[in-house]
Nucleic acid binder design. Structure first.
Length: 136
RNA sequence: CGAUUCAGGCAGACUGUCGCGGGUCGGGAAAGCCGGCGCGAGGAAAGUCGGGACAGCACAGAGCACCAUACUUCUUAACAGGAAGGUGCCCGCAAGGGCAACAGCAAGUGCCACAGAAACAUACCGCCUUGAGCAAGUCGAAGGGUAAGGGUGAAAACGCGAGGUAAGAGCUCACGCAUCGGGUGGCGACAUUCCGGUGAGGUAAACCUUAUGGGCUGCAAGUCCAAGUAUAGAGACAAUGGGGCCUCGGCCUCGAACGGGCUGCUCGUCCGUCGUCUCAGGGUAGGGCGCUUGAGCCUGCGGGCGACCGCAGGCCUAGAGAAAUGACAGUCGCCCCGCAAGGGGAACAGAAUCCCGCUUAUUCGCCUGUAUCGCUAA
RNA sequence: GGCCUAAUAGUUCAAGGGAUAGAACGGAAGUUUCCUAAACUUUAAAUCUAGGUUCGAGUCCUAGUUGGGCUA
């Protein structure tokens, strides 16, 4: 169950334990202006999900309004671009958690972020294809 | 018309598509389901600087310590806030505005570097006087008087003039200044062309004194739920140094040591001490409540110079929780540049328990009214 | 979110309201050596910012800025 263009609550990571396991066991990939950390996991009892966590450091943006602005743009861009990843998960019946950490020090425009997020999604997809073949 | 002053207000609007968080209504057995309706950041939401509400903990009592406040009268739930006023200083041609750590060094103590004789009662130079002495002078050992002058310093005996004197000195007088007491005016701070006394260095953002107030911690407060088990707690049994009693393993009494409580200390006072069993049940992660109806907002009338208060009617206006309030497109409005086509711009900034204040940030922003100054015309 | 706390040379710390802000390590230059090290001599470098109190602030007061800590 994944909404194609929406981003409801169950597609966001909220639990402390989930975040811990994601950052402990997840794989990190750097796609400017992001650092993406993701973890594929399968759970038969629960439906397939593609979940997101966005993070903007207080060190890079001192004001709350700038952090909120960046996070909103990131969520919007993710919402528009997550479809390919969802298709992969649906096909192999596997879930994925993704954390996007914003590493740039300037606020990029929505258009740029749309582009970069697409790249990041494809990167994650590629990684999965490669490793799923290797394990098989 | 231009430049200001003060007071108050605003912080672009609308439409469409996609998306998010609560609420509510309907469908559905139910869901992280579907559909409709309606709501969804600020004047500072910020800093967390005051003050409350609310919550938990603590609380026999006394004293000390500690912290805060500090012109007056009002106002407020309260405040280091606000209003009106007094005093002093500063800015502006003016309308007006700003600042005050505006109680007390005349209660006590401390400090005042360097310089200077002396930094609180002192004689270095100087002035005046007595004049041992012999070289008999414009000499001067030693003593006394003196704060007018010099010099030092941030600061030196109230200032200035006259009288007075050996020389001087509030020593005396006139004028002025400061301060204390009384009178008068004012609720009061205070004012005063009134009367009398006094003349005392500064520093309390030095210790301190006086007056008033103050338990501590903060929604990550706190509380409930299901799962689950460490052992703080409760109950029962049992249990210690001296003395006494007796039915000989219990009771009474006294004292000491250690630890702890009375949210800083002292007095004073209270409690506990080792083991076993049973009951009960901590922390952590998850979820619910706290969580938004409130010292609330709007309108009208009345009271008050005003802050503000009273009455009547109406309204419900974010409530998240790894944390919603977003993206794109278009139209119109505003500001700037430009003859025009057109181009550019729109600040500071994002709720986190809730209020009242303060402070800081904010576009050569905009609107309304008040007053002042300047120019032009009648 | 709430509550505390600090800021002095490049670094770690000193400094009763009183001259030119001190010490150690580090840096630079020199002496010594064939060269380096060690040793010795010399030297540069700082009070977070803005107001105020005071004759005079690193120190006292107010506001701001930037760090650090505690709290589930």
């Amino acid at each position: 169950m994944v909404s194609p263009e929406g981003l409801p609550k169950y597609e966001r990571i909220c639990k402390e334990n989930d975040i811990k396991s994601l950052f402990d066991q997840g794989v990190g990939v750097s796609v400017y202006p992001y650092r993406a950390v993701f973890l594929f996991h399968s759970n038969a009892s629960r439906p397939v999900t593609v979940r997101l966590l966005v993070s903007v450091s207080k060190k890079r943006f001192h004001h709350a309004i700038s952090r909120n602005r960046v996070k909103r743009l990131m969520r919007e861009a993710w919402r528009r671009n997550k479809a390919p990843l969802y298709e992969i998960c649906q096909r192999d019946n596997i879930s994925v958690d993704v954390a996007l950490v914003y590493t740039a020090t300037v606020i990029h425009t929505y258009g740029e972020l749309l582009n970069k997020t697409q790249k990041a999604v494809l990167e994650i997809g590629k990684w999965y294809e490669k490793h799923s073949k290797a394990t098989r």
